[in-house]
Simulated scan of single mutants.
Amino acid sequence: MSSTILALKNVSKSYGRGAAAVQVLNDIDLKIEGGTSLAIVGPSGSGKTTLLGLCAGLDQSTGGEITLNGVLLNGLNEDQLAAVRNEHVGFVFQNFQLLPTLTALENVMVPLELRGMKNRKANALNLLDKVGLADRATHYPSQLSGGEQQRVSLARAFANNPKILFADEPTGNLDAETGALVESLLFDLNRSSGTTLVLVTHDLDLAAKTDRIVPIKGGRIG
């Protein structure tokens, strides 16, 4: 039986202070079981990406509590949050966020190096092979297509064997055919790794492939 890997209790987020404060999220309650997949869907400006950032420890909530794999994120400083992310979390972003001065192989090796893992090169090459890019290992991001860059970012996301993977519009910058390939790889890697997947998307066809869909509108879960 799976246990809860991510729990949000009365979570809110606002920016600014006083009369100028903008409330982005209101009283969010959410529990996600380990090994499952979930899609957060909603219109632009609904708070999807803000919610994802809070769940992943990229930002701090204004109110409420967030517990990630048994760690209470509230009150942690930036270094502590970074350590939690490095230990438990993988990321896939819409705009790839690969380091331009590193090759595909070196990009995948970054999280392995941060954790001081052994056999870094062999593990990174294995991951590149899983996404069909072993022959592009020495290429730089500028030498890769958008789809190839996203596949490299997928390999990097799984490099540290994350407990939970957060994907923000992972196919948003890709054409339909390339997006379908990335989707397939994402779900295949997630399944084989036993990772929990939380993705933000406006693509309802993509969302339908997850175990659970959570709609959000006006900063509230519907």
Results as ranks from 00 to 15, higher is better:
156 R>G: 00
188 D>M: 01
162 P>W: 10
161 N>I: 05
135 D>L: 12
84 V>I: 13
181 L>P: 00
209 K>T: 07
9 K>A: 12
152 V>K: 00
211 D>A: 08
118 K>Q: 12
66 I>D: 11
215 P>K: 13
106 E>M: 02
28 I>H: 12
147 G>A: 05
174 L>N: 03
185 L>Q: 05
46 S>H: 10
1 M>I: 08
191 R>D: 07
170 P>I: 00
219 G>M: 01
213 I>D: 05
128 L>P: 02
210 T>C: 12
118 K>R: 14
149 Q>Y: 01
155 A>F: 02
35 G>L: 10
6 L>T: 08
221 I>Q: 07
180 A>D: 11
176 A>F: 11
116 G>Q: 05
212 R>Q: 12
60 Q>M: 11
146 G>A: 04
31 K>E: 15
139 H>W: 03
164 I>Q: 06
92 V>D: 01
222 G>I: 15
51 L>E: 04
115 R>H: 08
196 T>H: 09
217 K>A: 10
153 S>L: 12
80 Q>I: 11
188 D>T: 05
197 L>A: 08
79 D>W: 04
198 V>P: 04
109 M>A: 04
171 T>V: 05
134 A>F: 06
10 N>R: 13
222 G>Y: 14
158 F>S: 04
195 T>G: 12
98 L>D: 01
147 G>H: 01
199 L>A: 07
128 L>A: 09
51 L>S: 09
48 K>T: 09
141 P>I: 00
146 G>H: 01
26 N>D: 15
29 D>C: 15
130 K>N: 06
29 D>L: 15
82 A>P: 10
98 L>T: 02
45 G>S: 09
39 A>F: 14
69 N>H: 12
107 N>T: 04
196 T>I: 11
182 V>S: 01
39 A>V: 15
100 P>Q: 06
4 T>D: 10
15 Y>K: 06
222 G>P: 05
191 R>N: 11
6 L>G: 08
118 K>E: 05
135 D>W: 11
174 L>R: 01
185 L>H: 11
218 G>F: 10
155 A>I: 04
208 A>G: 09
129 D>H: 08
19 A>M: 14
207 A>V: 14
213 I>F: 08
122 A>H: 10
204 L>W: 11
186 L>K: 06
215 P>Q: 13
40 I>N: 04
67 T>V: 15
112 L>P: 02
13 K>C: 00
3 S>T: 15
102 L>W: 02
159 A>G: 00
42 G>Q: 09
163 K>Y: 10
202 H>K: 15
194 G>N: 09
98 L>P: 00
21 A>V: 14
183 E>T: 07
168 D>V: 03
203 D>W: 04
160 N>F: 05
161 N>H: 12
190 N>H: 06
49 T>D: 08
120 R>K: 03
